[in-house]
C-alpha cells in the first residue's frame, strides 16, 4: 500500500461514520490524499512509522489529522496528547470529531492543543457540510509551517 503523500490522516473506529465522512470528503475532492485508520494505536503507528507503517518515510507529515474522540484501546485524547507534546508534530492541525458535546473532554482537548472540536451532526445535510468545510478550511485556506 502506498502511504506517500497522505494529506489527511483520518482516525475513526466507527465503520458508518467513516463511510459517511469519507464520502463527504470524496464529494469535496479530498479522498485520494486520505488515509483511514481504525484506532488510536494504528494512528500512532502511522505517525511514528512503526508496525505496518515501518516503511513510511518519517519526513512526511499529514497536513491534517481528523481524530475521533471515543475509540477503544488508545483514545483520541491520548493520540492528541502525544501529537501535541511532540515538537516535530505539534504544528499539524488536529480536528477532534465526536458524536456528542456531552463528554467532559472538550476543555481537555483544547487544553492539549486541539485545533478544532466538531460534534458530528445527526442531520446528514449538516454532517456532509461540516466535513466539507473542515476539508476546505484546513486543507486549502489555513496555512501551516510545513
Amino acid at each position: 500500500m502506498n502511504y506517500h503523500n497522505v494529506e489527511i490522516l483520518f482516525v475513526e473506529d466507527s465503520t458508518d461514520d467513516a463511510a459517511l465522512t469519507i464520502r463527504a470528503l470524496k464529494k469535496s475532492g479530498f479522498t485520494n490524499k486520505l488515509h483511514h485508520v481504525i484506532n488510536g494505536a494504528e494512528a500512532l503507528d502511522f505517525i511514528y512509522c512503526k508496525g505496518t507503517y515501518a516503511s513510511r518515510s518519517d519526513k512526511e507529515f499529514p497536513k491534517l489529522i481528523l481524530l475521533d474522540l471515543k475509540m477503544p484501546k488508545v483514545s483520541g485524547v491520548q493520540v492528541l496528547e502525544k501529537i501535541k507534546s511532540d515538537p516535530n508534530l505539534k504544528s499539524i492541525p488536529v480536528v477532534m470529531l465526536t458524536s456528542s458535546n456531552e463528554g467532559p473532554d472538550i476543555e481537555k482537548c483544547f487544553e492539549l492543543g486541539a485545533n478544532s472540536y466538531i460534534v458530528k451532526p445527526v442531520d446528514s445535510d449538516k454532517f456532509f457540510n461540516a466535513v466539507k468545510e473542515i476539508g476546505l478550511y484546513w486543507m486549502i485556506l489555513s496555512q501551516s509551517p510545513h
Binding site: S14, D16, D17, L20, R23, K70, T98, S99, S100, N101, E102, G103, K120, P121, V122, D123, S124, D125, F127, F128
Partner: peptide, 21 residues
C-alpha cells in the same frame, strides 16, 4: 446522558446519512 448522546446519536446519524446517500 453521555452515552445517550454519544451512542444513540451515532446509529441515527448512520441511518440518516445512508438514507441520504
Amino acid at each position: 446522558s453521555y452515552s445517550v448522546s454519544h451512542d444513540l446519536r451515532a446509529p441515527i446519524r448512520a441511518i440518516n446519512g445512508y438514507t441520504r446517500i
